[in-house]
Amino acid sequence: MTPAPAVPLLAVEHLTMRFGGLIAIDDLSFSAGRGEITAIIGPNGAGKTTVFNCITGFYKPTSGRLLLSLGDATAPADVAALTASGRRFRRTAAGAVFLLERMPDHEIAARARVARTFQNIRLFPGMTVLENLIVAQHNALMAASGWTVLGLLGAKRYVQAEARAVERARSWLDRIALTDRADDPAGDLPYGAQRRLEIARAMCTEPALLCLDEPAAGLNPRESADLTAFLKSIQAEHGTSILLIEHDMSVVMEISDHVVVLEYGCKISDGTPEHVRNDARVIAAYLGVEDEEVEKVEAEIGT
C-alpha cells in the first residue's frame, strides 16, 4: 500500500452531533488517508451513518471541524486562517481546502468531490441504468449546455459533451457487467446489481472521496468477494480514497488500510485491521462482555 502522506484527505476533528438530548456522536476525531480505504465499524446504533451524513452535508454537525483537502498538502496556518475567515473553502494553485461542516450537501458533492451511496439503495428506479449514470454527470453537462441555453439551441459543444458522458457511463457499465441492461429501468435490476450501479453512479461524479454505506449488505459471499475486488480496482486505478461503513468483517479486514471503531458515538479503537482485530475494547463492544472478562473471551475465541 502507499505510505500515508503527511496531511490526510479528510480530517474529522472533535465532531459532535446532538439530536435534542441524544448525543449521537461525541467528540469524534479521526482521519482518512489519501488513496486509502478507511472502514468505520461498530455495533448497531453506534453513529456510523450519522458520521457519514455529517461528512456529506445531510446533517449540520453540532460542533467540530470536517476538513477536506485536495491536491497538495495545505499548511496548517492556511487552514487556521480559512477557519477564522468564515468562508467555506479556499482554492490555491496547488489544491483546495474545504470546511465541509459549512457547506450544503450538493455543494460538498459538486465542489469538494465527495460522493456517497446509501444504506437503503437510492437509485432513480424509473429511469434507465444509463440515465442514472448520465444524471450523475449533471454538473459537467450543465456547464457544457451553457446552463441549458446553448443546449436548447442544439450547440455542438453540448452534443460532444453528452457523447463523452455516455462513453464514461459505458466504461463503468462494462466494469460492473451491466452493459446489456443499460436500457432497462434501474428499479428492475436484481439487488446486487443495484448495489453495483449505485457505486458506479457515485464514481461517475469523479469523486476524490467515495463514501459507501454498507455496500456489502444483502450480498451473498460471492457477490461480496466481487465487490471487494471492485473496490480495490477503484482504489488502484482511479486513486479514489474510500470511506466505508460495513458489518461484513471479511470485507472490512480484507480491503481496509485503516479501521475506525465506534461505540455509542465515541471512538474506541483506530488503526490497522490487525490492530483493531486484537483490541480488547473492540472485542468487548462486539461481544458485549465486561472488560475484566475480555481475556477469558479472547482465550476462548483463540486470538
Partner: peptide, 9 residues
Amino acid sequence: IACRSLGIN
C-alpha cells in the same frame, strides 16, 4: 436525496 448526493442543486 440521491439528487443532492450527486451534486445537483
